[in-house]
Design a protein around this nucleic acid. Structure first.
Lengths: 214, 214
DNA sequence: TAGATTGTTAATCGATTAACAATC
DNA sequence: TAGATTGTTAATCGATTAACAATC
C-alpha cells in the first residue's frame, strides 16, 4: 500500500544518496537526507521504514546499503525497456535526456508516423512507425511508455500501447487518457504548470519549497 | 487562500471549456466538465465557487462567460513575459512548445552560456548570455522563468533570476532550488516521474485516473 | 409541480507532523 | 551515563467527498 508520493520521494532519496556516495559519504541521518530532499526528517524515517530498511541510532543510515535497498524496492529486476511515442521536439529532447542516464530504465524504442524519422536512429534509439507498436512492444516486452504526441493523437496511441501490453504511461499530451484499471498514468502538463507558476508569481504565494534548516 | 491544486484545476477547466467553445457548445454542467477534466462534479462546483462564478440551476455554466471569468482570475492583466534559461535540447523543445500557444503567457527571452546560441533567435525568441539576466529581466519586467539548465548550474541561475526580480520558477533541473519566501517554485522532475510509472507498471497499482462515468 | 442542478455545510479520508519511548 | 537518533503511535491538518437545502 505504498503511496504514489512515497514512491516519488524514494526516487528523490536515491538521487541524493548517489550524490553523497559520489562525495564518499558513508552514512547519513534522517535530518540530513531530509534537508537534501526537502522533506521532514520524520517523513524520511517513515518512508525508509516502509521499504523495510532500518538505520541505527549511532550511525543513522548506511548510504551504499540504503541505495541498494531503494533500488531493490523501486527497480525492475532486469532493466525495463521503455517506449517513446512521438519523436517531435519534445520527444527528441526526452530521448536525449534519458539517453545513458539510468541504465536500468532507458528508452529502447521510439515511434513516430513521419516517414523521414522511421528507421532512423535518434540518440541511440531506433525509430519505428506507429503501426509497429503492437509487434515491437510485444517483442521487446515493453511495459512502460512515454507519450509525446500532440493531444489529438494521444488517445489512439495510448489505446494501442495498452493493447500491446503497456501498463504504465508517462503522458505529456495535454489530454486525459482513458485507460483500463491497473494501468498507471502520470501526466506532465507543462502548460498547467507554467500557468500555476505565473499565477503565484503574481499573487505572491508562500513558496512550495519549505525553508531550509540553517 | 486558493490552493495550488485549485489553480491547476482551473487551468484544466479552461482548456476543456475552450475545447467546448470550439465545438460551439454554449453551456455546460458540473458533471460534464468534471468528466472532461477528470475530477468530481462537487470539486468543479467548489472550484468555480472559489473564483466567484455562479451557474444557474437551469443551464449550469455559460461556457464563454466562464472562460472569461477563469481568465480574469488566472491571468496577468497584460501579457506576462517569461524567461527561459538553458537552451539545450529540453529548452529548445519547451521554446517550441510554448511558441504561439498562449499569447498571454509566452516566452519572451532565452538565456544560455553557449556563444553559438547567444544573439541568435530560436523559435521567435532572442537568446542572450547568462550575464545579461539582470539587465534583460529588469528591462522586460519578467517575473516568471523556466530553468532547463543541468543540475550543476541550476542554483546559481535561480539566484540570478530571483535577484533580478523573478517571483515564480518552473524548474526542470533535478535539484531543489533555494529561494526566498514568496518565490514560487514548481518542479517538473521527469526522472522521478518515469521511475514512478515504471514502479506502478510493475506493481499493478490502481490507475491514477479515476474511471469515467458511463 | 417534478426533476435536475447549484451552493454550502458536515463528514470523511488520507497524508503529514508531532510526540515519545526505545536504542545505542 | 548523557545525548542524539531511530521506530512508531497519536494528533493534526488539509483536501476531498457526501449530503442536502435552495433554486429554477
Amino acid at each position: 500500500m505504498t503511496s504514489d508520493k512515497t514512491i516519488g520521494r524514494l526516487s528523490l532519496y536515491r538521487r541524493m544518496l548517489n550524490g553523497l556516495m559520489a562525495e564518499g559519504v558513508a552514512n547519513t541521518f534522517s535530518h540530513q537526507l531530509a534537508n537534501l530532499a526537502g522533506v521532514t526528517p520524520a517523513q524520511v524515517r517513515r518512508d525508509l521504514m516502509a521499504i523495510g530498511y532500518s538505520g541505527t541510532t549511532k550511525r543513522g543510515y548506511e548510504v551504499p546499503e540504503l541505495v541498494d535497498s531503494i533500488g531493490q524496492f523501486l527497480d525492475v529486476p532486469q532493466g525495463q525497456g521503455v517506449a517513446l511515442v512521438g519523436v517531435g521536439n519534445l520527444g527528441r529532447a526526452i530521448l536525449s535526456y534519458f539517453a545513458g542516464r539510468r541504465p536500468n530504465l532507458s528508452i529502447t524504442a521510439a515511434f513516430d508516423n513521419d516517414p523521414y524519422k522511421i528507421n532512423r536512429v535518434l540518440h541511440g534509439c531506433h525509430c519505428y512507425g506507429l503501426e509497429d507498436i503492437p509487434r515491437v512492444v510485444k517483442e521487446l516486452d515493453i511495459r512502460v511508455a512515454v507519450i509525446t504526441v500532440p493531444a489529438a493523437g494521444a488517445r489512439q496511441v495510448a489505446d494501442m500501447l495498452v493493447a500491446a501490453g503497456v501498463r504504465g504511461i508517462l503522458n505529456f499530451a495535454p489530454i486525459r487518457l482513458r485507460v483500463p484499471p491497473h494501468t498507471y498514468v502520470e501526466d506532465i502538463d507543462m502548460t498547467m504548470s507554467l500557468e500555476k507558476v505565473a499565477f503565484f508569481a503574481r499573487k505572491g504565494s508562500a513558496s512550495l519549497h519549505k525553508d531550509f534548516q540553517a
